[in-house]
Nucleic acid binder design. Structure first.
Length: 470
RNA sequence: GUGGCCAUGGUGUAAUGGUUAACACAGCAGGUUGUGGUCCUGCUAAUACGGGUUCGAUUCCCGUUGGCCACCCCA
């Protein structure tokens, strides 16, 4: 039901339905979700008028933005690899049941936020809304349990959720994530939190880890019952949302911001009190390691996460400064998921970090990504013969390792010097008719304006000397 | 999914129920022959889409699409 509705919505945004003759209400038409007997005389037509627009909640990453992305990617890759994680790339499209079974039928992501559709073969498929389930699937499919454990993997890539876009929230966004399989040692929980923290430090953003434990399959259900019993008795004092939460997602009751509800949580049973010994011990160890590593954290007994597969440790990364409550990343342990998806019982944990949100943080804190792409040399040419020479010279200089920019289309020297200036080139090499005849090039120092004639055979060596790399 | 605000050149803004929709920045071309950063001149370029009201709509109304914000939830 939910699913069928989705198809219609998705279709509407990209296709204009052209009505032929008889006017059939499009609404009525879309209600026959299975177009088995195509009574409806309308056919989808690709929109031919107007300029095609980017889809809602999706974004072009333009050249001006790339410096942020470059830095983010490098930081993530260097860090993950330094800690022994290996890269994995899984498909963007997966079978819908993978997410339904892992994330949970009851969750918002599965109930209303998946980009799902029936493919031409009749399979129900989904653009991945999160990164963990696909990696788990891959771990099982490729028998990675027979590799030396723990298996440590990381990924960078796009995720999709059919949501209403707003600040820091898109229908397509990118995540940096890591997953560790095959060991339940709390040192691993601490390690991934450290990694998340270090990633943000690497791009100049301070973060705090909020940690909680949800217990295991033994102690969590017990707690859940206690909590539900408590809130049932106070039902009349709850807000509308929370009344729904009692049956749907009781743990969420604990972080409602309504005055009435947050007053009630003072008296509410605490999950930390109902953890069994092993879970308590595990959490304590995690916190000890965090102390050792000097990762700033707060123990937040009200922290809950949106996916069903978490056990024991859960955490979220929040910015240290500012009132932003949107998480920069989050994750936790999911000791039951591999088995739940049909693999051997395998403990595991991981996190996902929203890269658009990382960039947002950088911008709001006015952190400029480091970049040194100013060219050493700009190559300008004048006239047809010179252009042909310049084309060849450009390649010689590039191969010689000179950071180079150039232009082969502008006619006037003036406009080429303007470009050279804008790019911040230290030298401009000028190649005109006269130089071609003389077999020379003209090297202009953009700072001083001094110019020097150089034998074109010595162009590479002279330029290398000038820029101090010869 | 719910609620609120909004939509004018590439960007940021202005204006109007009635002639060529204004300004700044950016872009492009010039300011004698092949020389940048400043300055001057010119040019390019916009009322998101579809209906309605009206003699006339960019302006008012409705719908669609999209953006922003809050909620739900999340990265």
């Amino acid at each position: 039901m939910v699913f069928k509705k989705k198809i219609v919505t998705v279709g509407k945004s990209s296709i204009v339905r052209k009505q032929v003759e008889k006017k059939v209400s499009p609404r009525a038409a879309s209600r026959n979700n299975r177009p088995a007997p195509p009574v409806v005389e309308e056919k989808p037509v690709i929109r031919t008028k107007g300029v095609p627009q980017v889809l809602r909640g999706m974004k072009d990453v333009l050249p001006a933005e790339q410096k942020f992305w470059r830095q983010i990617r490098h930081t993530a890759e260097d860090l993950a690899e330094a800690y022994g994680f290996e890269r994995i790339e899984t498909p963007i499209l997966e079978s819908t049941p993978l997410f339904v079974r892992s994330v949970g039928v009851q969750t918002d992501v599965v109930e209303k936020e998946m980009f799902s559709f029936i493919d031409r073969g009749g399979d129900n498929v989904t653009l991945r809304p999160e990164g963990t389930a696909p990696v788990v699937r891959s771990y099982i499919n490729h028998g990675m349990f027979s590799l030396p454990q723990p298996v440590k993997l990381y990924y960078l890539g796009p995720m999709f959720r059919y949501e209403r876009p707003q600040q820091g929230r898109f229908r397509q966004h990118n995540q940096f994530g890591v997953e560790v399989f095959g060991d339940e040692n709390p040192v691993l929980d601490a390690e991934i939190m450290l990694l998340a923290h270090l990633f943000y430090r690497g791009i100049g953003v301070s973060s705090v880890v909020h940690v909680n434990s949800l217990g295991c399959s033994d102690c969590r259900p017990r707690y859940r019952e206690e909590l539900v019993a408590y809130y049932r008795s106070k039902r009349s004092q709850l807000c509308e949302d929370c009344k729904r939460r009692i049956s749907k997602n009781p743990l969420r009751l604990l972080d409602c911001k309504e005055d009435g509800c947050s007053a009630l949580k003072e008296e509410a049973p605490q999950i930390l009190d109902s953890l069994d010994e092993a879970c308590k011990e595990h959490l304590m160890k995690v916190l000890e390691y965090l102390d050792d590593l000097q990762v700033p954290y707060v123990l937040d007994p009200h922290l809950v996460r949106g996916f069903d597969y978490y056990t024991r440790t859960v955490f979220e990364l929040l910015p240290e400064e500012g009132e932003t409550k949107t998480a920069l990343g989050g994750g936790g342990r999911y000791d039951g998921l591999v088995e739940q998806l049909g693999g051997r019982p395998t403990p595991a944990c991981g996190f996902g970090i929203g890269l658009e949100r990382a960039i947002l943080q950088m911008k709001s804190q006015e952190i400029e990504p480091s970049q040194n792409d100013t060219p050493d040399v700009f190559l300008a040419q004048l006239g047809d013969n010179a252009r042909r020479k310049a084309f060849v010279l450009f390649e010689e200089l590039r191969v010689a390792g000179i950071r180079l920019a150039g232009n082969f289309t502008k006619g006037s020297l003036k406009s080429q010097l303007e470009i050279a200036n804008r790019l911040g080139a230290r030298y401009t090499v000028i190649l005109g008719q006269q130089e071609v005849i003389d077999g020379t090039i003209l090297v202009r120092d953009m700072e001083s304006g001094m110019q020097e004639i150089v034998d074109s055979k010595k162009a590479v060596s002279e330029l290398k000397k000038k820029i101090g790399r010869g």
